[in-house]
């Protein structure tokens, strides 16, 4: 079979739609995971920043354990221990892992807010919780947004594990399924190429945004 025939076989509307639906799954899972992680990560960062107490200890233990063990292992553990379907198992394992990573990013952001700001707020009679919500977090968020977006890129990349581990049909998984059907050399190379380009376009756009923000926006104040 010559190359153009191979490509004709591969580039049908249905195959492309099939592949694209995998890309949407990838984005959906990463999106939900990063959103949940931002909430839990912020809570965890605040806990870890406390002076003392059980919450600080728990948050520290969680972050250290989760961050120092591979993501892939968490996917296995979440799936085998909680025995969930692949989509919730995927979302939860990425949330679990990304929460720890984001907690450290948020903590860095919180610590970067100058004490003068907080003191000024205190002198205005704001409570500590109010200071956190209205003064510290908004400023910290601004400075840590680039890092959060980079983490988003990491999550999108790592969701590619989900096919081989959980049979979740994300972007790379769909390509793998198609490869079972279209196994000619040219077709296999083309499929890897397509998937790599798909990931690259999205991630490059995000990394560029992250870089642009850190140059022009994060340090604006």
């Amino acid at each position: 079979m010559d190359f153009s025939q191979q490509m004709q076989q591969l580039f049908t509307f249905n195959n492309m739609k099939f592949l694209f639906s995998g890309l949407l799954t990838t984005l959906y899972i990463s999106g939900v995971a990063i959103f949940l992680s931002m909430i839990f990560g912020t809570l965890l960062a605040i806990f870890r920043n406390m002076q003392k107490g059980i919450l600080k200890i728990l948050a520290t233990i969680y972050i250290e354990i989760v961050r120092n063990v591979p993501n892939l292992l968490w996917i296995f553990i979440i799936f085998l221990v909680f025995r969930l379907k692949s989509t919730p198992a995927g979302i939860i394992s990425f949330t679990l892992f990304t929460t720890a990573a984001l907690a450290e990013i948020v903590r860095g952001g919180l610590n970067g807010v100058s004490d003068g700001q907080k003191e000024a707020a205190r002198s205005q009679g704001l409570k500590e919780s109010q200071i956190m919500l209205y003064i510290t977090l908004p400023q910290a968020f601004r400075s840590m947004l680039p890092a959060i977006i980079s983490q988003f890129v990491t999550v999108i990349k790592d969701t590619s594990f989900l096919w081989s581990v959980l049979a979740l049909q994300e972007f790379l998984g769909k390509a793998n399924i198609l490869m079972g059907r279209y196994a000619q050399t040219g077709q296999v190379f083309m499929l890897y190429g397509l998937v790599a380009i798909g990931y690259f376009i999205i991630n490059f756009a995000l990394s560029s945004l992250s870089r642009w923000l850190s140059r022009n926006w994060a340090k604006a104040y």
């Binding site: 096919w163 081989s164 049979a167 793998n176 490869m179 079972g180 196994a183 296999v188």
Partner: peptide
């Protein structure tokens, strides 16, 4: 991890034979 991966492994000569139930093989 999966049958499509095994089929690709056969195509790429990573394995000499892909072994599983015949009916499953028939699809590949």
């Amino acid at each position: 991890g999966s049958y499509p991966e095994l089929k690709t492994a056969l195509t790429s000569k990573r394995i000499d034979a892909f072994s599983v139930d015949k009916s499953i093989l028939s699809g590949y």
